[in-house]
Amino acid sequence: MPDAENFEPRIVAFLCNWCSYAGADLAGISRLHYPPSIRVIRVPCSGRVDPFFILQALQQGADGVLVSGCHPGDCHYLTGNFVARRRFAVLNDLLEFCGIEPGRVTFAWVSASEGERFAKLVTEVTEKVKKLGPNRRLKKELP
């Protein structure tokens, strides 16, 4: 078990192809530094993110999950993120209700031009998850 000092969280990031993934790309080509904690999964749209994906990432041992799409009004498919937003709102409330630590799962809007914001976001999310420590709640441990 990693001790708290050396704990390097693994954070699964679901990024929409058209905005947030491009934002991450921009952060990269701008040579911005941010923690190497995220494992990016590119999805066509935030509307493609089934809440089940988020739970499964946690089940399989991710310490945190980041979901990011285009700002409202900018979705490549026009309304994908609006519909997703309602789903995420209910999921977010349910996670709170169940006692999943606030900060395990983060939702964000990041545009293709917000490379700097993306780097900052990942830094903050990583710090937060580090403070929470390893994910033990939803992680599936076989007896």
Partner: peptide
Amino acid sequence: RFGGDAGTDLSQPPALTVFKPDDPQEFIR
């Protein structure tokens, strides 16, 4: 968040199949 109880208004679609552009999003960064 979205108003209404399920199955009380036949003229409206179920709440999670629709959206409003200004739905609250205080939990999103």
